[in-house]
C-alpha cells in the first residue's frame, strides 16, 4: 500500500481523487437540492421556510466535523511531525470557518421568519457562534506566525485545547440559556423528523461532506505546491545571489 502521508504520493492520489469527488459532489448536490427544494413536503407549521433546514443543518454538522478533522491533523502534527498533517490542518481552518459562517447565516435567515428576529441568543446559535470565533482565532494564529512549521505546531496545541474546551463551552452555554430561558423557543415539529424530510437531509449531508473532501484535498494540494514554490524561490535566491554581484562588479579585464 502506498504511503499517502507522503506529499508526493498525496499529489498523485489527489490528481485522480479530486475529479471523482468533485463529480460526486455535483451529483449529490443536484439530487439533494432537487429533493430539498421541490420534492419534499412543506412543514405544517413553518411552510416553505423549512427548506432552509436542508442547507442549515448539514453546515452545522460540517462545522463540527471539520473541527474533528483538524484535531486529528493536529495530533499528526504534534505526534508524528508530519508535513502533510500541517497542510491538512491549515487547509481545513478556512473551510471550517466557512461552514460555520454558512450555518450562522442560514440560521439567521431562518430565524427572521420563525422567531421574528435575525438573531436570538439561543443556546445552539450561541455555541456555534463561539465555535466560529475559535476558527477565526486559529486562522489568525496561522497568519501571524511566520515560520510555517512552528505555526503548525502552535496551532495544533491551540486546536487541541479548543477541542477539549468546545464540549465545556457547549455545556456552559446550554446551562446559561436555560437560566435565561426566553418565553418562546422554537423546536422542530416533533421528536422525530418525517422520512420525507430525512432523506433529502441525509443526501445534503453527504453532498456537504463530499464538497468538504474535494475542497480540502484541493487546498492541501495548493499548500504543498505553495511550499514547494517558496522553497524553490529561496534556492533560486540563494544561488542567484552571486550572479548579480558579479554582474555589477565585473572582474577587471587584464
Amino acid at each position: 500500500m502506498p504511503n499517502y502521508a507522503n506529499p508526493a504520493e498525496f499529489l498523485r492520489l489527489a490528481r485522480i481523487a479530486v475529479p471523482v469527488t468533485a463529480a460526486l459532489t455535483g451529483v449529490l448536490f443536484a439530487v439533494g437540492l432537487y429533493l430539498a427544494l421541490f420534492d419534499s413536503p412543506p412543514d405544517y407549521q413553518q411552510g416553505e421556510t423549512v427548506r432552509i433546514m436542508y442547507l442549515h443543518v448539514p453546515s452545522a454538522w460540517m462545522a463540527m466535523f471539520v473541527y474533528i478533522v483538524m484535531c486529528s491533523a493536529a495530533l499528526g502534527t504534534l505526534v508524528w511531525r508530519h508535513p502533510l498533517a500541517d497542510a491538512a490542518q491549515k487547509a481545513a481552518a478556512p473551510l471550517g470557518a466557512g461552514f460555520t459562517f454558512l450555518c450562522l447565516m442560514t440560521g439567521s435567515l431562518w430565524g427572521k421568519p420563525m422567531w421574528g428576529t435575525w438573531w436570538v441568543w439561543d443556546a445552539r446559535l450561541t455555541s456555534v457562534f463561539v465555535l466560529f470565533l475559535i476558527y477565526l482565532g486559529i486562522i489568525a494564529l496561522w497568519q501571524v506566525v511566520e515560520d510555517q512549521g512552528k505555526a503548525a505546531r502552535l496551532v495544533a496545541i491551540f486546536t487541541l485545547v479548543g477541542g477539549v474546551n468546545i464540549p465545556i463551552i457547549k455545556f456552559s452555554v446550554d446551562w446559561w440559556n436555560t437560566l435565561h430561558q426566553s418565553a418562546s423557543v422554537f423546536r422542530l415539529g416533533g421528536p422525530t423528523i418525517a422520512m420525507s424530510m430525512l432523506w433529502p437531509l441525509l443526501i445534503m449531508a453527504l453532498a456537504y461532506t463530499s464538497l468538504f473532501l474535494t475542497l480540502h484535498m484541493m487546498a492541501i494540494r495548493n499548500e504543498i505546491l505553495r511550499r514547494r514554490i517558496k522553497r524553490l524561490a529561496m534556492i533560486a535566491a540563494a544561488e542567484g545571489e552571486a550572479a548579480p554581484v558579479a554582474g555589477i562588479f565585473p572582474e577587471p579585464a587584464e
Binding site: V130, L133, L136, G137, L141, K150, F158, N165
Partner: peptide, 24 residues
C-alpha cells in the same frame, strides 16, 4: 510569546475559551 505584537491575538484566542468561567 514569540510574536512582536501578540496582545490582540492573545485576547482573540483566549476570550472564547474563558466563556465557561464567565458564565458560571
Amino acid at each position: 510569546v514569540s510574536l512582536r505584537r501578540g496582545g490582540l491575538l492573545l485576547a482573540i484566542l483566549i476570550l472564547p475559551l474563558s466563556i465557561p468561567v464567565l458564565i458560571f
